[in-house]
Design a protein around this nucleic acid. Sequence first.
DNA 1: GCATTAACACGTA
DNA 2: TACGTGTTAATGC
Length: 235
Amino acid sequence: MQARVRRRPISEQELNNIPWLSRLTDAERSCVLEKLYVLDVQPGDFILHRGDTARNWFGVVDGLLKAAVETEGGDTITYTGLGPGGWFGEGTLLKQELFGYNVQALRKSSVACLPYDTFKLLLEHSFPFCWFIMDMFNERLAQFMNTVETDRTLVPEQRVALTIKRLINPVLSPMVGNELQITQQELSYLAGLSRQRVNRALQHLQKLGIIAISYGTIKIVQPEALRNIKTIDRG
DNA sequence: GCATTAACACGTA
DNA sequence: TACGTGTTAATGC
């Protein structure tokens, strides 16, 4: 099924991209390293499908993923983007249910997988780990509540700003700083807009001094300003 | 009117 | 060369 996906041990370098690892004791840490492995995926590859059994907790070591569902009409509804340092699947894993969404690579990515048993062990033995999970839940809940409140009413400039804001969330994507490594095409998949429209929106945000666009990168100059983009006249 | 698709030129890695 | 960006024209809701 996933012939293109390669499975391998995690490298020493990549350990730095796992934000909760430093919170563990040495014993816990070595226990994790015994079980953890990495999937190398290509653009378009699915990390998991809706309906899959929850066996692992997943984390983005490098790259960019998209969590989404398909409607009956064939439209795609994007739940969230997942950047370096972002972990997902814990909700489904805890409930021992089937995944209700797809996760797909938008670019070449490396995804860490931690088997359920190890994940559970950490939850039962490590308070610092529990705090990490709780902070994550909390932040994720806030994002989705915010989505319910605002998403339908947003103009493209605001949608793009919100998509960026979510990607640089320090709790959900700890390894992403203020420099977002993303193409406008990838951003368009996450925002649910055309690439051309995203381009226009980005240029508007740049004109406002909120971001700085460069090749394959968006630098966020004023993170706070991403929340309140005014609807403006068009030229 | 506004967003999308398609197509193209140009710049960058 | 392959890919990302910026722009325009045609098309559709």
